[in-house]
């Protein structure tokens, strides 16, 4: 299994929106390398013909009727907002466009 480099940690931090500081990158890179080295054992079973388990219970088709339930009031919805304006969540300028 490949080890994890500082650059890789920096890339992952960007994906995860974590503004890691320089020394943190080094620190984490070392620790993550250890952890990944240890947990990589699971790939022993990668070739085994075993179905993966994503859910611990054999449940299917849990659905609800298409019936309206009460929403929060806008005041409740916005109660935790760091900033608000015109009954909307006020956020800093958005750069990317998807």
């Amino acid at each position: 299994m490949p080890g994890i480099t500082r650059e890789e940690v920096a890339h992952l931090a960007r994906l995860a929106r974590l503004e890691l500081k320089g020394e943190e990158l080094d620190h984490f890179a070392g620790q993550l390398d250890d952890i990944i080295g240890a947990v990589a054992r699971v790939s022993e079973v990668a070739d085994q013909d075993v179905p993966p388990t994503s859910h611990p219970l054999p449940l299917t088709n849990v659905m609800r009727a298409d019936e309206v339930r009460p929403s929060l009031t806008p005041e409740q919805a916005l109660s935790g907002a760091p900033a608000q304006e015109q009954q909307r969540f006020k956020v800093p300028q958005i750069l990317g466009e998807d």
Binding site: E85, Q86, Q87, R88, F89, K90, V91, P92, Q93, I94, L95, E97
Partner: peptide
Amino acid sequence: IHGASHSLLD
């Protein structure tokens, strides 16, 4: 989106 100072979300 360009040049906006902030955005409001609904």
